Simulated scan of single mutants.
Amino acid sequence: MKNPSTPSDGQQVRETVRSGYAAIASGQQRSCCCGQRSNAADPARLAQTLGYDAATLARLPEGANMGLSCGNPVAMAALMPGQTVIDLGSGGGFDAFQAGEKVTASGHVIGVDMTPEMLDKARKNIASYSQLTGLDNVEFRLGEIEHLPVADSSVDVVLSNCVINLSPDKEQVWREIFRVLKPGGKAAVSDLALLKPLPENIRQMAEALVGCVGGAILVEQTRAIVEKTGFSRLALRTNPGYVQSMQDWNDPLYAEIAKNLPHGEKLADFVVSLTIEAYKE
């Protein structure tokens, strides 16, 4: 089988991801990108492990936190009132709604997701968000992160949380991020990356694709793509303990992947949580 990231297989990869996340949104499947754990309280536990505070989580619409994070790009972004923000792969609205509170009524947040079921879930959460916060500054648009439904140079900050891994064309994603950012704008991204190449059988697993693992590339490949796109003031930071914690929590997706690894190897030997801060001059 070809590498999932080759352009000829791009649409197949997107459909695999789309169907997997549709199942998550409809409750037919529990595990996915940095997936939801077997314990019902785990999405909140995971979020707090990543630095989201309990008070903020309590203000989110019910079901917005689906346990899909591998970092905290909202905190990294240091959002300010009045900013325009786009959230790539916005899911149920977890980061988008938090961003909405931070940019206040004078700001605007646009969530983009390619899965209609996720979009429906997020849009239904808007009424609850407005009731909780008194704000009407978040919207959700259907679209692929490789082709964002947003005008050129119109956004102050781009957020993404464990999503770019899923794209079969990461260079195009970063070109789009660069296109939509205003001069001086910032990308704040949490993702998964590789410390060394994954065995081919792991890359071929559909569970790995939907789990943000099969589409991951090397940390230095990520750096090269972002620099090539034209970003400056680039900072990449790794969190090697994140994937190990997923294994310690006995997540079924990670257990399935781990049993297919070479003898004596752990998933944390290959995969790391990565934060990316990059500015458009």
Rank of each mutant, 00 (worst) to 15 (best):
4 P>R: 08
8 S>I: 13
12 Q>M: 11
15 E>H: 09
16 T>G: 02
16 T>H: 05
16 T>M: 10
17 V>P: 04
18 R>H: 09
20 G>A: 07
21 Y>T: 11
24 I>K: 03
25 A>N: 08
28 Q>E: 15
33 C>P: 00
34 C>G: 09
34 C>Y: 03
37 R>D: 10
41 A>Q: 14
45 R>I: 14
48 Q>P: 02
67 G>V: 02
73 P>M: 15
75 A>S: 09
75 A>E: 14
79 L>W: 13
79 L>T: 13
84 T>S: 15
85 V>Q: 05
87 D>S: 06
88 L>A: 03
88 L>E: 06
89 G>I: 08
92 G>F: 12
94 F>H: 07
95 D>G: 02
97 F>A: 04
97 F>M: 06
98 Q>V: 04
101 E>W: 11
102 K>L: 14
105 A>W: 13
106 S>D: 06
106 S>L: 06
106 S>Y: 01
111 G>A: 04
111 G>N: 00
114 M>K: 09
118 M>I: 02
119 L>D: 06
123 R>F: 01
127 A>M: 08
127 A>E: 13
129 Y>G: 00
129 Y>N: 00
137 N>W: 02
139 E>V: 14
139 E>R: 13
139 E>Q: 15
142 L>C: 05
143 G>I: 09
146 E>N: 04
150 V>L: 10
150 V>D: 08
154 S>I: 08
155 V>M: 09
158 V>E: 03
158 V>Y: 03
158 V>H: 03
160 S>I: 10
164 I>N: 02
165 N>E: 15
171 E>D: 12
174 W>M: 14
180 V>Y: 03
180 V>T: 07
181 L>P: 01
184 G>F: 07
186 K>W: 12
187 A>G: 06
190 S>V: 07
192 L>V: 05
193 A>P: 00
195 L>A: 03
196 K>R: 15
199 P>Y: 12
200 E>K: 07
200 E>T: 05
204 Q>C: 08
208 A>C: 11
208 A>D: 06
209 L>P: 00
209 L>T: 01
210 V>D: 01
218 L>H: 03
219 V>T: 08
219 V>A: 05
220 E>D: 15
226 V>E: 07
228 K>E: 15
233 R>P: 00
236 L>R: 12
238 T>V: 09
241 G>A: 13
241 G>C: 04
242 Y>N: 14
245 S>Q: 14
252 P>G: 12
254 Y>Q: 14
254 Y>H: 13
260 N>S: 07
260 N>I: 03
260 N>A: 08
261 L>R: 06
265 E>D: 06
268 A>P: 05
271 V>K: 07
271 V>H: 05
272 V>T: 05
274 L>N: 01
276 I>A: 02
276 I>F: 02
277 E>T: 08
279 Y>D: 08
281 E>K: 13
